[in-house]
């Protein structure tokens, strides 16, 4: 692109105005929400998941996720009785339209694993961002500032769970926001709203009345890749040992 002095003189004030807009931000939409009173996470109950793909479709609708990209997706595992360490995993179109039928009597164990951003307390993705465009909020949600993101893709590589992608049109990193625009208004996430079996439940770990506390007392839950010490807050109940 060739910019001569005349063009630059026109462009600079325009850029200044645009930057002013970035500086100003937009006002808080939910004035009664106190960030310090929440610490968000998600409970994923594997024995309840039927692989219908409702969560994937709901997320796409709620958050305008482009086709072929996923903020949440569902995987179908086939853990053979003979190859316990190497399960076969499929996720056709993220499980958006469900899965091929598995016939009765097939060898091994079949089950569904919904995946999403784990909203890690010590997230590798926020640590690698060179410009402070991704961060964990005071209420425990990992977010991306699309106005600051350069689209360098460091965070996409850093996420051990593969939860981030570069948005094909905006060219910035994108991922699950835990429906931050909903949970700050007292609603649950779109995926939880659409889940017909309660396999996904939004959890507020700072709320003593949240059913998550009773659940955690009476169940042994796991997180994905605990050896990476990410402080993941997507808690899986009934997770098979073959899931990585």
């Amino acid at each position: 692109m060739n910019i001569n002095r005349r063009h630059l003189m026109i462009l600079l004030p325009a850029a200044a105005v645009a930057w002013k807009h970035v500086l100003a931000g937009t006002p808080e939409d939910s004035p009664n929400y106190q960030m310090s009173e929440h610490w968000w996470g998600m409970l994923i109950d594997i024995p309840k998941c039927i692989g219908c793909g409702n969560c994937v479709r709901a997320c796409q609708t709620e958050n305008d996720v482009p086709d072929g990209f996923f903020r949440t997706w569902v995987e179908q595992y086939h853990r053979s009785d003979y190859h316990l360490e190497t399960p076969e995993v499929i996720s056709p179109d993220g499980g958006k339209e469900g899965f091929p039928v598995v016939k009765e009597g097939e060898e091994g164990k079949f089950f569904f694993v919904p995946k999403m951003c784990n909203h890690c307390t010590d997230s590798p993705c926020t640590q690698v961002c060179p410009v402070g465009a991704t961060f964990i909020t005071p209420d425990g949600v990992v977010l991306i500032d699309p106005k600051y993101c350069l689209g360098c893709g460091y965070c996409v590589q850093a996420c051990p769970y593969g939860c981030r992608y570069i948005h094909p049109e905006k060219k910035v990193a994108d991922k699950c926001t835990l429906c931050y625009h909903r949970i700050t208004k007292g609603l649950t996430t779109a995926c939880c709203e659409a889940c017909p079996t309660g396999a996904r439940q939004l959890a507020d770990l700072k709320n003593p009345n949240d059913p998550i506390h009773e659940f955690l007392k009476t169940h042994t839950v796991q997180v994905l890749k605990p050896q990476m010490a990410t402080g993941a807050k997507a808690f899986y109940n009934g997770l098979d040992g073959s899931v990585r």
Binding site: D29, S30, E62, N63, K147, H181, R182, K185, E193, A194
Partner: peptide, 12 residues
């Protein structure tokens, strides 16, 4: 940025 993300429209 937090407020901006929280201001997204709700569809469900």
């Amino acid at each position: 940025a937090i407020g901006e993300i929280a201001a997204h429209p709700v569809k469900f």
